[in-house]
């Protein structure tokens, strides 16, 4: 099953770092994934996220306002 990872953020360096970590975590866990960067502020607000960058897995907000480590993201993907 392919999981859908979304990175919410308006393109700050932290968002890029989070996207890298998320991709690395999914690869390390051997999970098929699809990664999307959501930069449109209206779409970010639909998730009711007030702190960026945020990590969304299959439509559920997992973290907001921080960059979890690759290991932490692995646990969130499972």
């Amino acid at each position: 099953m392919t999981i859908k990872i979304q990175i919410l953020g308006t393109g700050c360096p932290k968002c890029k770092k989070l996207a890298e970590n998320a991709a690395a975590a999914a690869q390390a866990a051997g999970i098929a994934y699809e990664l999307e960067k959501v930069t449109d502020i209206n779409r970010i607000l639909e998730f009711d996220v007030m702190l960026t960058p945020a990590l969304v897995v299959n439509g559920v907000v997992k973290t907001a306002g921080k960059i979890p480590s690759i290991d932490e993201i692995k646990a969130l993907l499972a």
Partner: peptide
Amino acid sequence: DWVFQPRRGGGTGGE
């Protein structure tokens, strides 16, 4: 004006 445009809610913000 766009600040107040209606949005679909439902997200929890994960916080």
